[in-house]
Design a protein around this nucleic acid. Structure first.
Lengths: 233, 233
DNA sequence: GTTAAATTCAAACACTTGTTTAAGTCAATC
DNA sequence: GATTGACTTAAACAAGTGTTTGAATTTAAC
C-alpha cells in the first residue's frame, strides 16, 4: 500500500508474453520453490530466507515480485488450481462430446475429476498444500484467499449435474455427500502416502499412474453407485 | 537439558491420580487450547502468547509443563490418538466377541474403524490437526513425532486381518490400498467440511451423527466390496 | 506454624521473522 | 553513450518468536 517505486507486485509482467523460457525467470523460480517447501513443511514454518535460498534468489525478491509472503502463497495455490481445473474441464468436455449430448458414462465423469489430480500427485507436490491453504484461508488469511477457495468449489460444481444424471437413484443431498467422499479418497493420494507405505510394509507406492488411477476409480464408482438408504430406514 | 529446578516437563504429576477434576488443571487447559488453535489455524502460526492467553494461563506455563512448544504438539496429538485408538480397539473387540471367534460382519469392522473418528469430528476439532502433525513429523519435527505416527499405523494394522477375512476376494496389496482410501473418506469429515457446505449451498452439515456415520459406512463398504480387477486386465 | 516443594508470574533474553530501504546492476531505447 | 526503467542486492528495521530466569505465590506435609 505504501509502495513508492514501480514494483510489479502482482502484475503479469511488462509485456513479454513469457512464451518459452529463454532464462530462468525469478518469479517462477520462487513459485517452484514455494510450492515444494510449503507442501513438504508448511506455509508458516518456511521462512522467506530458507525459501529464497532454495530458489537461488535474493531475499527481497519475494516482496518485490509478489508483495508479501501471503500473496506468494495465494499465487502458488492459484497456479496449481488453474492448471488442475483446466485439465478437469477439458476431460469432462471431451467425455460429453463423445456422449453426443447425452450423459457420459459414470466412469468417464469420475476419471475427468480424479485423473488430473492423480497425475499431479505423480509429477509434483503441488496439491499437498491444499489443506494448508484451506487452514490459512479460513484463519488469518486475506479475503482474497477465501474467494479463491470458493472459486475452486465453483469448478467442482460443474460436475454435479453430469453426476446426478449418471446416478439417478441418489437424492441431490446424498450426491453432494458422495462427491465430497470422492474428493477425500483422492486427497489420500497426496496427504498420507507415507502411511500407506509403512502400513503395507513397502508394498504399495505411487508407481504406475494407470494402475493407481484404476484403483481409485473402481473404489469411488462402487461408493457412488452404492444403494441409497433413506436416513432412519 | 539444562533444567536446573525440578520441573516436571513430561511427567505424569506428583502422585495425585487426577481422577475427577477438582479444579481446572493448567496442563489440560493448555492441551485443550492447543488442540483447538492448532487445528483451526496451524501449529506454526499459533504463537505461545496467543495460545496461553486463550487458555488463561501464564506464558511460561507451556515450557514449564511440557518443556517446549514442539513437545506440546506431540502431547496434544498423543492424547487424541490414544483416546481414538482405544475406542476403535474396544469396538473391534466387541464385534469379534459377538462373532464368537469367527469373522465379524464387514459392516461392524468398518464401523469400529470409522465411527469413533466421526464421533470426535462432532465433539471436538481434535482430528483436524492430523495432517499438520504429519507434515511436522516428516519435516523438522523430532524423531519422537515420527515414532508416534508409526505407532498410529500399528493400531491400524490391527484391522488388516479381520478385513482380509471379510473380503476374501482381495489380494493383500489391494486391501491395503482400499483401507487407505477408507481413511481418506473419513479424513474428509474434518478437513474439508466447509467445502461440502458451500458446494451443497448449505444443505449438508455435520448434524446427525448416526446419519453421517451411515453415509460414510455405506460408501466405504461399497468401495471395499468392489470387484477386483487385476492390473492391466 | 514452619518447611519444602510445586507452581505461577512478570520481565528479560537471544534470535528469527517479514518487510523496507537505498544503492547497485543490467538491458534496452533514443 | 546517456537515460530510463526493471530488476537485484546487502543492509537495516521494527516486531514478534520460543525460551529462560529469579522472585513471588500457592500447595501440601509434618
Amino acid at each position: 500500500m505504501t509502495q513508492s517505486v514501480g514494483a510489479p507486485v502482482a502484475g503479469v509482467g511488462v509485456g513479454m508474453g513469457n512464451a518459452g523460457s529463454p532464462k530462468p525467470d525469478t518469479k517462477e523460480l520462487i513459485l517452484d520453490a514455494a510450492e515444494r517447501l510449503f507442501a513438504e513443511k508448511s506455509y508458516a514454518s518456511v521462512s522467506l530466507r530458507e525459501l529464497t535460498a532454495a530458489a537461488g534468489v535474493n531475499l527481497a525478491a519475494v516482496n518485490y515480485h509478489f508483495g508479501s509472503k501471503d500473496a506468494l502463497l495465494i499465487a502458488v495455490f492459484r497456479r496449481g488450481a488453474v492448471a488442475l481445473n483446466k485439465e478437469r474441464a477439458r476431460l469432462l468436455r471431451d467425455a460429453e462430446e463423445r456422449a453426443g449430448g447425452g450423459t457420459p458414462p459414470l466412469r468417464e465423469i469420475v476419471e475427468a475429476l480424479v485423473v488430473p489430480s492423480i497425475r499431479y500427485s505423480f509429477t509434483s507436490t503441488r496439491l499437498a498444500l491444499y489443506n494448508q491453504f484451506v487452514a490459512f484461508a479460513r484463519g488469518d488469511g486475506p479475503p482474497e484467499a477465501r474467494e479463491m477457495l470458493d472459486k475452486d468449489v465453483g469448478h467442482l460444481q460443474r460436475f454435479v449435474l453430469p453426476l446426478a444424471r449418471a446416478l439417478p437413484h441418489l437424492p441431490q443431498q446424498e450426491l453432494y455427500w458422495r462427491l465430497h467422499f470422492m474428493m477425500g479418497v483422492q486427497h489420500s493420494l497426496y496427504t498420507d502416502m507415507k502411511r500407506l507405505e509403512t502400513l503395507s510394509g513397502g508394498q504399495c507406492h505411487l508407481d504406475n499412474l494407470d494402475a493407481v488411477a484404476a484403483r481409485v476409480v473402481d473404489f469411488v464408482i462402487a461408493g457412488l453407485e452404492a444403494p441409497y438408504r433413506a436416513p432412519g430406514g
